[in-house]
Nucleic acid binder design. Structure first.
Length: 303
DNA sequence: GCGTCCAGGTCTACC
DNA sequence: GGTAGACCTGGACGC
């Protein structure tokens, strides 16, 4: 059964720019198809009840969302799905303050026309946090396989093989050894197990980050207190909370910046920091858009 | 075929 | 508060 999910998009919203905002679209349970753009996403509405989202532009270029499920969704379920999509696709995010800054910068002006700057998110902040930990100290291909293992072994599944991202409960229910050996998480197994267990026990309210009104410094420090999350991971996660006060440099960003601004020669972090300082609270987004600009103008690096 | 290096870093132990 | 060393994994590279 396929049902339309009613969702109104703000003027200037560009689906492709959100989908290709960073690597999440190529990590399960997202499934990406390019040209024509088609994003699938499995989410769980309860035990063995999985909904597969179909996200694309209609013939007029307007984003169109539908939900495929094994039995019809109730109006309440449709509303639940609508809220999840709104959050994943950042439909509720107001970009006008950033575009006012971008308008004054020749380096960033393109982002306005492209509706860039909304970072695609997972269904939960837990998912974003786990995936971010899975990006640390390894190649992207390893991130992809560790994530796929987690979903295959611990995600909620239906009889068609659709599978959602594991919940904190499902990860906390297995041992760190299982995560290490079966999911191939390596030393990250302890971090991810501890994260899941602390959420399960109620000692960490991780979803609270999404609604928190705390200052950015406080939020950054709180994220860094989660074991396995350091300066890069915290800044990356903050981008997914709409906070861009930190650069979140990793080896990939450093090498992109070296080729854009240093003729290929590496630049000190302090030098990079000063290059983006003038963007103030938007510097993390300014940096990210600059290093990923190719994805909007040429081709998103899939495969 | 085998050893080394390092990828979208972080933690801990020691200055 | 600053920094060396260890850390899973697997693909790339040199020999």
């Amino acid at each position: 059964v396929i049902q339309r999910i009613p969702l109104a998009f703000p003027p200037g919203y560009r689906l492709a720019s959100v989908v290709f905002s960073h690597g999440w679209c190529s990590l399960e349970p997202f499934i990406i198809q390019i040209d024509p753009l088609y994003l699938f996403r499995d989410i769980a509405l309860g035990r063995k009840r999985i909904v597969r989202l179909h996200i694309r532009n209609d013939n007029d270029g307007v984003p169109e969302i539908s939900a495929e499920s094994l039995s019809p969704l109730s109006p309440q379920a449709v509303e639940t799905v609508r809220r999840v999509v709104e959050s994943i696709l950042r439909v509720d995010t107001d970009m006008t303050p950033f575009y006012a800054v971008a308008a004054r910068s020749p380096r960033l002006r393109w982002a306005i026309e492209y509706g860039a700057g909304r970072m695609l998110r997972g269904e939960t902040f837990f998912e974003d946090a786990v995936k971010t930990i899975l990006t640390t100290n390894c190649s992207w291909s390893l991130t992809t396989s560790m994530n796929a293992n987690l979903i295959r072994l611990l995600g909620e599944k239906n009889r068609k093989g659709w599978s959602s991202f594991p919940t904190p409960a499902s990860i906390a229910a297995v041992t760190p050894e299982f995560l290490r050996r079966e999911c191939k998480l390596g030393y990250r197994a302890e971090y991810i197990h501890e994260l899941a267990a602390s959420i399960e026990s109620g000692s960490l309210d991780i979803e609270g980050f999404r609604t928190s009104k705390a200052g950015s410094v406080e939020m950054f420090d709180a994220l860094c207190r989660i074991k396995g999350i350091g300066a890069y991971a915290a800044a990356n996660l903050m981008r997914m909370l709409g906070r861009f006060d930190y650069l979140g440099l990793d080896s990939w960003c450093r090498s992109r910046i070296a080729s854009i601004h240093g003729n290929g020669a590496p630049l000190d972090d302090s030098r990079i920091e000063s290059m983006y300082a003038r963007f103030g609270e938007w510097k993390g987004l300014a940096m990210w858009l600059e290093v990923t600009k190719d994805w909007y103008f040429n081709k998103f690096p899939i495969d």
